[in-house]
Design a protein around this nucleic acid. Sequence first.
DNA 1: TGACATTATGTCAAATATGACATACGGTGC
DNA 2: GCACCGTATGTCATATTTGACATAATGTCA
Lengths: 113, 113
Amino acid sequence: MRKRKRIKLEAAGWTGGSVKDFLGLSEADAVLIEMKLALSRSLRERRKKYGLSQVQLAERLQSSQSRIAKMEAGDPSVSMDLLVSSLLLLGVSSTDLAKTIRGEGRRKSGRAA
Amino acid sequence: MRKRKRIKLEAAGWTGGSVKDFLGLSEADAVLIEMKLALSRSLRERRKKYGLSQVQLAERLQSSQSRIAKMEAGDPSVSMDLLVSSLLLLGVSSTDLAKTIRGEGRRKSGRAA
DNA sequence: TGACATTATGTCAAATATGACATACGGTGC
DNA sequence: GCACCGTATGTCATATTTGACATAATGTCA
């Protein structure tokens, strides 16, 4: 995207703080990155919920273990399209996807999607 | 994506019917496409709301008029990343994005985001 | 009708994403 | 220790996406 801020996002486990406002990230970039990270977490949760290994999930999605790992790690080389379609193939509803993307407001119990 | 169904989506103006179930689309592919179309519509609405031409919007997003046109037309060559980041740059909140993506349930008044 | 603005469509080089592969890292059981 | 499983990381050829450009189509206003 635009300037393509290729930040090494081992940001995987952000507590509650936002990614923006300590790097020269525009608000839009920051929000997009946070959305992707939320999707990443969601993917890992789903996979574990189903008791699948990355290899097994890769087969199911016709992808590769390394790509699954990168998806879950929030690697900048993974597109939102890939994250979303993977989650959809895992049976996540668009409603739950929306909750994940919405970010911020964690509802009742547990993380969405 | 996967098989990459490169359907010419002049689907731009879908009434209420879903894109799936008349082509050999998997449920996941169908949902993804519908999400993208919803984002497309949202982009056009936002642009018009601000009284911008495609050229003006292109400048604002550092893109080109043709790409804006393709985005709004639901052209298969545009990624979800591009749609989402464009909307974010237009000031759409992730909450509204979520509403757009959620699809189906049109809330109170007017289309979301 | 003729300008003129706006939007659509096609193409292309450069940028980016993807799956596959190798290989390294971390844990567990023996 | 070794062997095994799961995950991480790096690289690469191929595929897709992107901005830019040309050009066509559509509107609008005299």
